[in-house]
Amino acid sequence: MKRTEWKVGGTLVACLLTIFALALPANVKAQSGTASIHGHVNNPAGQALNSGDVKLTTDRTSQTNDRKYAYTFAIDANGDYKGSGIAPGNYVVVVFQGAKSIDFNDNVNLAANDDKVVNFDMSRAEYVAKMTPEERKQLEEYKKKNAEVMAANSQIKNLNAELIQARADTKAGNFDEAIKLMQNATTAKPDEPILWIALGDAQLGSADAAAKAARAAGTPSTDPSIQQKYGDAAASYKKGIDLNAASKKPSVETAAVAYNQLGQAYGKQGDAKNASDAYESAAKAQPASAGMYYYNEAATFYNAGKLDEAAAAADKAIAVDPNRADTYFIKGQALIPKATVDPKTQKIVPPPGCVEAYQKYLALAPDGPHAADVKGILQGIGQTIESSYKAGRKKK
């Protein structure tokens, strides 16, 4: 009896195991055989739709907004979306922005293990044709404006690259290349002050190089061709200054830099009045840097051999920045040629302020690059170097 029961029981167990084994693959396959979907969404202008959702439903019995959506996948900033774990079926796939449906595909078959690409391009002709006349008008206006913006951005990108290259060429002494680049740039965008100022820098560098070559050859730097180069630079700086002043948001820094450079161009042309006015304008534009601009004025006049103007500019620089040593050196150098000889004593009589300027230079820069020259001048005109300056500063 026990043996018979064992056989019956064993047969039943074996049958159940067989049935379970046959059923198991089908059950596992049904549970794991889901689908995936991904794609890209463009708006009617042909640009990536950077927000919204893609929703899937098999419900076709009601209005789009009233349907129940089994799956929702977000559209990212690049216009892409993706989703997985979707039960096989035939779906309506709808693009939403907020609560509004804006595009759809009503026949997307997803089989088990599918990874289907479903893109939406709302710039397609049939989509645009269904837009209202007002919507199409707005779309065309947007596309036109966008094309203009993209063209402007492309131009700005190119001009920035040319500006960087021109500045590098000017710094390297490749003035002709820099001038050509900036002439092209100012032709392409004549209302940009920075481009004109960069052109002026290249022209000023070219003029300086020509003047240096003339001096080396023993010819005068007042040659008309050289003066024309300085004139071209001045004209470019003035153009940049005027455009900056007329802009919606004038740049104080741009104005100051341009006026400073304009002062150099005028000064090297020998136009003392306009040079002084330009440096004065630079100082007014940026009062915190007035000492530097007045110093530059003094240096420009001194290098141009205009000593009276150099001394006057040095006084202005000292008044706002009394601790710049080189300003005192320029003042002393500008005054020393006015020294006279006392007919009774035959001693050299320096002009007022000259010795004091030299002594102040030594006070501020006892080991400066001009210290030895200054001491030699003072000794040469019979002046005693003040003991506190003579030994220089002790190194710590």
Rank of each mutant, 00 (worst) to 15 (best):
A151H: 02
N153V: 10
N153H: 07
Q155S: 06
I156G: 08
K157S: 11
N158L: 10
A161K: 15
I164K: 15
I164H: 15
Q165Y: 13
R167I: 09
R167H: 09
R167W: 10
A168Y: 15
D169K: 12
F175S: 09
D176F: 14
E177G: 07
E177P: 06
E177D: 10
A178S: 15
K180L: 06
M182C: 09
N184T: 12
A185C: 11
E192Y: 13
P193K: 06
P193W: 12
L195Q: 09
L195F: 15
W196V: 02
I197F: 11
A198I: 15
L199E: 02
G200A: 10
G200C: 07
G200Q: 02
D201S: 08
D201K: 04
A202G: 07
A202T: 11
Q203E: 12
L204T: 05
G205L: 07
G205K: 00
A207H: 03
A207I: 10
D208V: 15
A210K: 02
A211V: 12
A213M: 06
G218R: 06
P220Y: 04
P220R: 01
P220T: 04
S221K: 03
D223V: 06
Q228I: 04
Y230K: 01
G231D: 03
A234T: 00
A235W: 01
S236Y: 01
Y237M: 04
K238F: 01
K238W: 00
K239Q: 06
I241G: 00
L243F: 01
A245Q: 09
A246G: 03
A246C: 08
S247I: 07
S251M: 04
V252M: 12
T254V: 14
T254W: 05
A255V: 07
A255N: 03
A255W: 02
A256Y: 00
V257R: 00
A258M: 03
A258Q: 01
A258G: 02
Y259F: 04
N260Q: 07
N260W: 01
Q261M: 14
Q261N: 13
